[in-house]
Nucleic acid binder design. Structure first.
Lengths: 106, 106
DNA sequence: AAGTTAATGAACCATATGGTTGACTATCCG
DNA sequence: CGGATAGTCAACCATATGGTTCATTAACTT
């Protein structure tokens, strides 16, 4: 799996995006992250692992708690990949228009 | 699965991103899409289905060929979601800096 | 009519994902 | 020491994913 693969895959789950949302307001212990969710701590721990593997957060062990901190760097790569397609969604130049333009080009 | 879920999931595979890349240069029949890949047409057809389900492309049947066309609209939503985090990766205000700022805030 | 090409469908396989529970480890608190 | 809290690990389960092959349908070509 490439970097982009794991980044997009990690972002493809609502729970994980919510975790990142929480982390945007600052470092948070895993148990606090888990509270809003109707699932076991184990399940949240697994989601955190996926995010960690994708490099979207870092975990620091401090005493018995794990402190999670957002690392948005991989998101930049994802955003960069997406912006290559910006012209296709920016209205002014949608995919149909481009299609027609390409045909008229010949 | 929400819209964002399926968009990010669809983008999490190299082959599917490559398919979208190809479509950026214009409408393409499925069989042409499949050529560069070292896998069966069936496999590519499945990837196209995933992209189609996510709304990232549309398929138009024309005679015996299926013509695929890029639809970047869902990418805009994904990009919009990501830009909420832009401040975290824009160097000027990275996650560590924000973390320290939050601590100093008190 | 016969053959080729485009594509899907069905069955199968291996592995990944998302969740659970129960046992265990480690740390903190009294 | 004894108990509560934070978290992982292992086993298990259901379903999804990514690929294959073989058969089949549908549409062009000659």
């Amino acid at each position: 799996m490439t970097n982009l693969d794991s980044t997009f895959a990690a972002l493809s789950h609502e729970t994980r995006r919510a975790i990142l949302g929480k982390l945007a307001s600052g470092e948070t212990p895993l148990s606090d992250l888990a509270k809003p969710f109707n699932m076991s701590l184990t399940a949240v721990s697994k989601h955190v692992r996926v995010l960690s593997d994708a490099g979207l957060l870092t975990v620091e062990r401090r005493g018995r708690t794990r402190h999670c901190r957002l690392n948005a760097q991989p998101m930049k790569q994802a955003a960069d990949w997406l912006t290559d397609y910006q012209s296709f969604w920016s209205g002014q130049f949608d995919s149909l228009a481009r299609h027609l333009a390409a045909k008229g080009d010949r």
